[in-house]
Amino acid sequence: MRRCLVNIKIKNSSNDPIYLQIKNQIRDAILNGELEADELLPSIRLLAKELRVSVITTKRAYDELEKDGFIHSVHGKGSFVAPQNLDLIKERFLKKIEANMTEILRYAKLADVSHDELIEMIKTLEDENAECN
């Protein structure tokens, strides 16, 4: 059990509320293995102090992470990274992709967009996102 050292960046210009920015960054760190199972996360008060946001904001981020099964809290001890069943998570994401894809295909059919064009669009989007980051 080591201390959590994860980078969190708050962007005020972002359209996402601050709690969501925190939640997403911690979730990503857990998913890509930056944060390991059973690691102790900073307390909500410490996180609020360091990021200079309100305690309610950090609490909400942790609450949502807990609800989604990424972390678990032990009263009086703090919040820990929950052991992740990566297959399960992958499956969950696959389902989401599937649902969105169905939607995309529906629109593609309506607008008469070919599969090649779709793949081209995905590539362009990826490139754009890479530039942004």
Binding site: P17, I18, Y19, A48, R52, V53, S54, V55, I56, T57, R60
Partner: peptide
Amino acid sequence: KVADYIAFIHKGQLLFMEAKDELV
């Protein structure tokens, strides 16, 4: 930035007291 709640008083009346995040 650091306030959890905002209480807003106007002409002697408390208009609201709400969590800042929800308010914003």
